[in-house]
Nucleic acid binder design. Structure first.
Lengths: 181, 181, 181, 181
DNA sequence: ACCCACGGGACTACCCGTTTGT
DNA sequence: ACAAACGGGTAGTCCCGTGGGT
């Protein structure tokens, strides 16, 4: 159910996704939803955000912990992965938590989204530190890289093209490597 | 009415904004809406997006055409302006068209949002060309800068802080200047 | 619509009456309900109570203003009328506002019911004063008579018989006349 | 559990009381309800009504069997007791079975309420016979007294005042004593 | 005797769009 | 260009009752 919810929220946003859609997609009955998520839609969204955050975290960690690749190559790999999902879904699957931030939902949901961003930031920061950046600079760069990737995902959906994402990956990769020197 | 609609869509997203809200906010009667916007909600959103796009375009153009400032300073100025609006609104007013892209709305609305992004891109590109970048590089950099700023706006809303935006401005400014050399 | 609502609330109580039932009975469309009663179910119930109160008030006034009859006969007439409606409806139509008092509904609804009781009380009191009782005694007796009639309606529904109502009418009539002496 | 159910039905009516409320209040698990009351909500309500009826019966019997007091004083005592409960509960605890009569519930529930009324009637009748009334007159008077008290409880809830109850007690007491002569 | 999970049908509230009459 | 009312579909929430697994 969480899976179905996460995908629908990602595709249609929070308000745009009806619980009926979630139930129809997941096949679960109506009563089960409020048994497992007594907090209703908000709780469902918050847990979906947390799950999506964790999932992507692991994927990113896998891409960044292969010591054979440089930090720059890690960024490119992540971007390629996100771009692949985007294109495969017909430019529907962007960032799974961004809609929660833009739609002024319940604070609990927004906080879940914020935490997902925080976790992604930390993964990136760690990798940058391992690449030789000091802690402060790594945090700054991680925030910037995350901003650029998120914004690129947005532009990709708008343009129906993965070009902004590739462009972002290329620039970030360059910055990450160059600054290291 | 368009003003009210633009602000509400910006704050609550497309699905999250009811036409009743728009009518109540703008004070306009229900009948007028379908007189001026026979296409209904979609047309209203599309025109609101176009208007928001044009408005921001002018603001950006004003910030970038002052030859006294460098390209880097122009970026910082724009970011400061967006950050100011964000903070002044209690972190509610982010990008006015981003919600339309994330919520898989009617294609006409998404296209209006895409065009707004395109216009902003062109303003930035022009400024970069005037700063000495060749056309191809200016386009690439404009896309990247737009991505970073949009993503930073998203992170700012998530973190309830303008720090990501300032960070993005600083990095972009540096890149823009450095590359010029 | 108010008519249908009043009857259904009278038969099934506040919580036991769904707005769907009201709509189906009255034939009105769903949207009209919230146009005419933006306050929703509570407002509908409050207005239904007010209307029922006024209706019964007029009926009672008609029964009590015929100078030919004594005060005692007026009471009997009213009871006969209520008993007739009760029996004609298969013991479903009791007091139209009593359910609102017993079901701890929204204060606005309870207040509407209280006002209906107040209006009925005043009609009875007036008639008693005309029959020679002083103001204080007339108020007391009116309250008592109203209590007895309301309680009798309750018992009639429970026993599926109009006997308690007739009994109450007989006793009240006797008291009203006897005290006058 | 019956206790909790009885109180909630008394306060909010039949339809207005959810089984979840009963379970939450009593602390009992959901599974137990349908083990002990396979008939569901209707059975629960019927047994709650029977229990409430019996409880009040005993209280009334205690108040009326003290030979030191006259029949009139017994009525006043009962009214004082009901008024005390009413006031102590913030005018929420009226008659425990009246809601079942007004809300056209399952016949089994209404019958249980009717039986409670019958039992109360018999207690009053007995007392009146002991006070010297013949059987027929005692029955009539008992019905009337019960009507007046029930109606007074209703008006008390509506007015948020115990005055109607005191008024009713005073009148009934007078009738009961006077008729005896 | 209890407990979790299901199952789907109700509830009220609100939606967007249209029609009809100024 | 406004205004009032209709029309009915759908939103999220909560309902009561039923099983399978101890």
């Amino acid at each position: 159910m969480l899976e179905a919810a996460a995908r629908l929220f990602q595709e249609r946003g929070y308000s745009g996704t009806g619980l009926n859609d979630v139930l129809a997609t997941s096949g679960a009955p109506r009563g089960s939803l409020y048994f497992h998520f007594p907090g209703g839609k908000a709780q469902l969204a918050a847990e979906a955000a947390a799950r999506s955050g964790k999932d992507l975290c692991e994927v990113m960690r896998a891409a960044t912990t292969q010591e054979a690749t440089t930090a720059g190559e890690a960024v490119v790999a992540i971007a390629a992965l996100l771009g692949g999902q985007l294109r495969a879904s017909g430019f529907r699957h962007g960032c799974p938590v961004a809609p929660f931030v833009l739609e002024d939902v319940d604070p609990s949901v927004r906080d879940a989204a914020r935490d997902a961003f925080g976790a992604w930031h930390d993964v990136i920061q760690e990798r940058l530190e391992r690449a030789g950046h000091d802690a402060k600079r790594a945090t700054e760069l991680a925030t910037f890289a995350l901003s650029a990737i998120e914004g690129a995902l947005l532009l990709c959906k708008a343009r129906q093209s993965t070009e902004p994402l590739e462009q972002a990956a290329s620039e970030i990769s360059r910055i990450v490597m160059e600054v290291k020197r």
